Simulated scan of single mutants.
Amino acid sequence: MPRLHAAVNAVLVLVSILYPFIWYFGQQYTGVIPIAVLMAIIWLLRALFSKKLLQKLLSAMLMFLFVLLAWLHSTAAMYWYPVMVSMLLLLVFAASLFSRQSIIERFARLQHPDLPDTGVRYTRRVTQIWCGFFCMNILFTSGLILGKYWHAWAVYTGVISYLLMGVLFGGEFLYRRFRLKI
């Protein structure tokens, strides 16, 4: 079962990364239904194999959303998936700011269980920066959708947004390693 769970997660990540291109290029050949059904099946499997209740609920919500999109044959709504993913990530990161440990602090404690107070403040700030990134990503992607810039949407959501995430992740990593010496 653990291998199947890992395989489902890997497929979900891969399809989510490739989704802008799957949708942009695939819709002209398949239409909404096959792609929406594929996404619904993947999210259903994720819901079934998730161990945490919140993951099960969010996965089930996305599964039902894709079932609804398939039923409605909503071509325009299919473009909103990257926005929904960014909203979910924003929700997770922002909610962690109201918990005892931010999500970035949890990751940091995997390497440094005795994280000092300065590290806690730093990880909280990095979590806030990621929240800002997700907000900007949501706004920019929404603008492309509302303006019906479909080619730009595919390039931005399929390439540029990932490059920006990589720059943010890499920049923070380099800053932490060379400036903070952590």
Rank of each mutant, 00 (worst) to 15 (best):
Y162C: 04
P34Y: 08
Y156V: 01
T75V: 15
R46A: 06
V13C: 08
A36K: 08
H73R: 13
L88W: 15
T141D: 08
V15E: 09
M78Q: 14
I33V: 12
F98A: 03
L68P: 12
V13H: 13
V67A: 04
D117P: 00
F173K: 11
N137L: 13
S142W: 14
W71L: 09
T141S: 09
P113K: 10
V11K: 05
T127R: 03
V13N: 10
L89E: 11
S50Q: 04
S96R: 04
L65P: 05
R100P: 05
G147A: 15
M61C: 14
L65G: 06
H112V: 13
A60W: 08
K181D: 01
P82E: 13
P113T: 10
I145R: 11
L18E: 12
F134P: 02
G26Q: 11
T157M: 07
L14T: 15
Y156E: 05
Y122A: 00
Q27L: 10
L72V: 13
W130H: 01
S99G: 11
R109N: 07
D117A: 06
Y29E: 08
C131Y: 09
W43R: 07
M136V: 11
L62G: 11
E172D: 06
V32C: 00
I138E: 10
L146R: 11
M84R: 13
I138S: 06
S161Y: 05
W150D: 13
V155I: 06
R3Y: 12
A152M: 05
F21M: 09
D114A: 02
R124D: 04
A76P: 15
T75I: 15
F169Q: 11
F173C: 03
V126N: 06
V13F: 14
A10V: 08
G170T: 06
K52S: 14
M136C: 10
V120L: 07
L174M: 10
L144M: 05
R106I: 07
V85Y: 12
G147T: 14
W43M: 10
Y175N: 00
L45R: 01
R176Q: 00
E105D: 05
L180K: 05
I129R: 01
L91H: 11
L72D: 14
L65K: 10
I103T: 09
F169I: 11
P2K: 14
G119A: 03
M84H: 14
F93L: 06
Y162I: 04
Y24G: 01
F178T: 10
Q101V: 07
L4R: 03
I129E: 02
A36G: 03
L88E: 12
M39Q: 08
L68M: 15
H5A: 03
S59D: 09
F178N: 05
F134E: 10
F25H: 12
Y79M: 06
D117M: 08
L97R: 07
L168D: 07
Y162D: 07
V37R: 09
G158V: 03
T30F: 15
R177Y: 08
W130V: 02
